[in-house]
Design a binder for these strands. Structure first.
Length: 422
RNA sequence: GUGGGCGUAGCUCAACGGCCAGAGCACCGGACUGUGGCUCCGGGGGUUGGGGGUUCGAGUCCCCUCGCCCACCCCA
C-alpha cells in the first residue's frame, strides 16, 4: 500500500516555490510598507475560540472544522480561519498596551484547515495571507486593508479583479433588521425546512443562506440589511466608499456577500477574479467591531482581510503570468578526469563558503554531459578544471550566456565571480 | 453534503475486448576522443491509481475503493 497525501491537500514542490515566494514576499513587503507587523499564532486553538467567534450555526463550525481531543482531554481545532487566533493573541499578549486608542496592525501568512469537498481552488488545507487592524472605527482603515489587497493583486499581475462590498450592520440596526426579517418570514414559517424553523428562533439571519430550494424561494423577496442600516452604519458605509474613491479603487455594491462568519459588522467585502470557475473569490474580509470584546477583551473595533494564496496563484496562471524567470547565477564546476575531482570539489567548497552558488557533478560524467547540465540548470558560468589547468594552477571560466571563456588563476576565481555580480 | 466526468511513462496524450501498451516532449548516451544551446542517430524508462469479478483473453466491461476534476453548495 503506497501512501497518498490526505485528500484535499497538496505538496508544494521546488519548482513551484518561486511563485509562492513571489506571492509571500510581495505580501510581506506590502504589509511592511502599510505599517503591519507580522504575527504567527499556533496552528491549533481551543475549539471554543472558533465556535464562539465564527458562530455555532455557520457552515465552518457546524461541519468543516478539524477538531480533535489531545491526550489531556482538551478539545482543539486546526485553525479554520485567520482572524480569531489573532484576536486571541491581541488580548492575551496585551498587544494594545495601556493606550486604549492605539491602533494595532498585524499581518500573517498561515495554513487554514476546512473539511470541505475538494475542487480546483478549494482545499482542505490552504494558505491565507491576512491583515487585521485593531483599535479603530475609522472608515479609512476599511479602505486601507482593501487597498493593500488590491495593491498585492496588481503587483502579482492579477489584472481582472472585481471588488464587491456590502454593509451588514451592527448591534444597533441588526436587531431591527432581524425583527423585519422575522415579520417577513412569520407568515410562511411552516413552509421552512426543519433547520430553518430552528434558525428562525435562534439565529434568524442564517435562514437567508439555507440551501434548501423552498427556503431560498421564500427569502427571495426578503428585506435587505443595507436598506435598514442605522445612521452610524450608513454613515460609515458611505465614508468607506468615499475613501475607496479617493484611492481610485472601483467597487460594486453586492447585498448578499459574506454571511459565512457571524462576527462581521458594518463593512463586508470580497474580491473575485475571472478564470477560476466557481471558486473565484481570491480574498475577502470586513469589519468585526464586537469580536474582541466577545472574546473577553476590551471593546475594540477592528477590520481585517484574508487572501487565499492558492487561488491567487491560480488566478495568476489563468492570466498567463509565468513565474518570474530566475537570472543565470552561480558556477558549475566541471571536473575533467579523476585527477581533477578533488581540486574541483575543493573549488566548489571555496565558492560556496564565499556565498556564491556552486555545484558539481557527483556522477563524474563526461565533459559534454557536465556542460549540458551547467547550461540547462541555469548556471551563469562553467569553471572547467582538467589536466591542463591542473598543471598551470588555473581554471577555465566560461560565461554560458555569451560563450566567452578566459583562464584565471585558481585563487582569483572567488573574487572574480563576486565582482562580476551586480 | 448532492449530482456528474476522469485516472495509461517524469509531463501532455494515443491504443475496436485480441500480437511484446505506443507517440511527442523531457531525460540519458553517441555523432563532436577537452566544451553547453541547433541538428541527426540510438537508449532507458509502465504494478495502465489500488483491489476483486466477467471472459479463451481486460488499459478497455462490471463491482468496491482511493484520488483528481466539474456543477451545486460554501468560501479564500
Amino acid at each position: 500500500m503506497r501512501y497518498q497525501r490526505p485528500r484535499g491537500t497538496q505538496d508544494i514542490l521546488p519548482d513551484q516555490m518561486p511563485e509562492w515566494l513571489l506571492a509571500e514576499n510581495t505580501f510581506r513587503r506590502l504589509c511592511h510598507s502599510f505599517g503591519y507587523g507580522e504575527i504567527r499564532t499556533p496552528i491549533f486553538e481551543d475549539t471554543d475560540l472558533f465556535v464562539r467567534s465564527v458562530g455555532e450555526d455557520t457552515d465552518i463550525v457546524s461541519k468543516e472544522m478539524y477538531t480533535f481531543e489531545d491526550r489531556g482531554g482538551r478539545s482543539l481545532t486546526l485553525r479554520p480561519e485567520g482572524t480569531a487566533p489573532v484576536v486571541r493573541a491581541f488580548i492575551e499578549d496585551n498587544l494594545q498596551g495601556p493606550d486604549r486608542e492605539r491602533i494595532v496592525k498585524l499581518c500573517y501568512i498561515a495554513p487554514i484547515f476546512r473539511y470541505d469537498r475538494p475542487q480546483a481552488g478549494r482545499y482542505r488545507q490552504h494558505h491565507q495571507a491576512g491583515v487585521e487592524a485593531l483599535g479603530s472605527m475609522a472608515p479609512g482603515l476599511d479602505a486601507e486593508v482593501i487597498h493593500l489587497a488590491m495593491t498585492l493583486y496588481t503587483a502579482l499581475g492579477i489584472t481582472k479583479v472585481s471588488l464587491l462590498i456590502n454593509s451588514v450592520g451592527c448591534p444597533v440596526c441588526r436587531p431591527v433588521y432581524v425583527v423585519k426579517l422575522r415579520e417577513f418570514l412569520a407568515g410562511s414559517r411552516e413552509e421552512l425546512c426543519d433547520d430553518c424553523r430552528r434558525r428562525y428562533e435562534t439565529n434568524t439571519l442564517r435562514v437567508l443562506d439555507c440551501k434548501v430550494e423552498s427556503c431560498r424561494r421564500l427569502t427571495d423577496g426578503a428585506p435587505k440589511q443595507v436598506d435598514e442600516l442605522c445612521d452610524e452604519c450608513a454613515e460609515h458605509f458611505a465614508a468607506v466608499q468615499e475613501h475607496l474613491k479617493v484611492l481610485g479603487i472601483g467597487f460594486e455594491l453586492q447585498p448578499r456577500i459574506v454571511r459565512g462568519l457571524d462576527y462581521y459588522t458594518k463593512t463586508a467585502f470580497e474580491f473575485v477574479s475571472t478564470g477560476l470557475g466557481s471558486q473565484d473569490a481570491i480574498g475577502g474580509g470586513g469589519r468585526y467591531d464586537g469580536l474582541v470584546e466577545q472574546c473577553g477583551g476590551p471593546p475594540t473595533p477592528a477590520v481585517g482581510l484574508g487572501i487565499g494564496l492558492e487561488r491567487v496563484l491560480l488566478a495568476r496562471r489563468a492570466l498567463g503570468q509565468a513565474a518570474s524567470q530566475e537570472p543565470r547565477e552561480g558556477v558549475f564546476v566541471v571536473a575533467v578526469g579523476d585527477e581533477a575531482w578533488l581540486p574541483a570539489f575543493a573549488l566548489s567548497g571555496e565558492l560556496r563558503a564565499a556565498g556564491i552558488t556552486a555545484d558539481l557533478d557527483y556522477r563524474r560524467r563526461s565533459l559534454r554531459a557536465q556542460m549540458r547540465h551547467a547550461d540547462a540548470a541555469g548556471f551563469r558560468w562553467a569553471a572547467i578544471l582538467g589536466e591542463e589547468e591542473l598543471a598551470k594552477g588555473t581554471v577555465a571560466l566560461r560565461d554560458l550566456a555569451s560563450g566567452e571563456q578566459q583562464e584565471l588563476n585558481r585563487g582569483d576565481l572567488v573574487a572574480h565571480c563576486r565582482n562580476a555580480d551586480g
